[in-house]
Computed example of a mutant assay.
Amino acid sequence: MAFHDIRFPAAISFESLGGPVRRTEIVTLANGYEERNTAWAHSRRRYDAGVGLRSLDDVAALMAFFEARGGQLHAFRWKDWSDFKSCLPSETTGPTDQTLGYGDGTTTTWPLIKRYVSGDFAYARPITKPVAHTVTVAVAAQPLDAGHDYTLNPDTGTITFTAAPAIGAEITAGYEFDVPVRFESDAIQMSVSSFRAGQIPSVPLIEVRL
């Protein structure tokens, strides 16, 4: 799938609607009990960037972005303002935010993940589009130097260490991240409501698997 490493205009996405979507198959048995199953290991996010009244400059920026992506053809980065950090929204990211795993003395490459914890259960979400300059990494709570101790692949969200972390050493990271999405339609509708403002009723976006 073609991917353009460019972010949807953050000022336009700020008031967007959206969030994770799951696919659960439910079969109700004759006795009233249910059997539930899902074919998706990971949720897929949907958004709508159309929030009504915009400046004509915003309308022009959206039109240019849509045309440059070829409608649904090319995916791109999207900032989900409700969930774009490895920490809580009110906090600042740090190298111990998320546990990626524990060293085995051999493995040098580790993918970024974000864990969503509730009670005794957790979901580990793959992070494939980190914001490169925000990523910090630590091993055994000791911050490391980017470029010297490790390198980051911003296209895949993987960290490669110069030397494999020691057996049992906790590997952690902090970061901001984007969501890879595409337009969900090959058409968007815009109108001019005044000499200075326009309307964008709906701009649907959907997360893509990379």
Results as ranks from 00 to 15, higher is better:
Gly32Cys: 10
Leu62Glu: 10
Arg46Leu: 09
Asp58Ser: 09
Ser55Gly: 09
Ala64Ile: 06
Ala39Glu: 11
Phe65Arg: 05
Arg45Gly: 04
Val51Asn: 07
Ala30Phe: 13
Val59Asn: 02
Tyr33Gln: 14
Asn37Ile: 15
Leu62Gln: 10
Asn31Ala: 11
Leu53Gly: 00
Thr38Leu: 05
Thr38Met: 05
Thr38Ser: 15
Ala49Asp: 08
Val51Phe: 04
Asp48Tyr: 07
Ser43Arg: 12
Arg46Gln: 15
Gly52Phe: 10
Glu35Leu: 15
Leu53Asp: 03
Thr38Cys: 01
Phe65Asp: 01
Leu56Phe: 06
Asp58Arg: 09
Asp58Val: 05
Asp58Phe: 05
Asn31Pro: 02
Val59Tyr: 04
Ala41Phe: 01
Val51Trp: 09
Ser43Asp: 15
Glu35Val: 15
Ala64His: 06
Arg45Leu: 02
Glu34Gln: 14
Glu35His: 08
Gly50Trp: 14
Ala49Phe: 08
Glu34Met: 12
Gly50Met: 08
Glu34Trp: 08
Leu56Pro: 13
Ser43Tyr: 06
Asp58Tyr: 07
Gly50Ser: 13
Asp57Lys: 11
Ala60Gly: 08
Asn31Lys: 10
Ala41Thr: 06
Tyr33Ile: 02
Ser43Gly: 07
Asn31Ile: 06
His42Ile: 00
Leu56Thr: 09
Val59Pro: 03
Gly32Leu: 14
Gly52Leu: 08
Asp58Gly: 01
Glu35Ser: 07
Ser43Phe: 03
Asp58Asn: 14
Gly52Pro: 03
Met63Lys: 14
Leu53Trp: 06
Gly32Ile: 12
Ser43Leu: 04
Glu34Asn: 06
Arg44Ala: 09
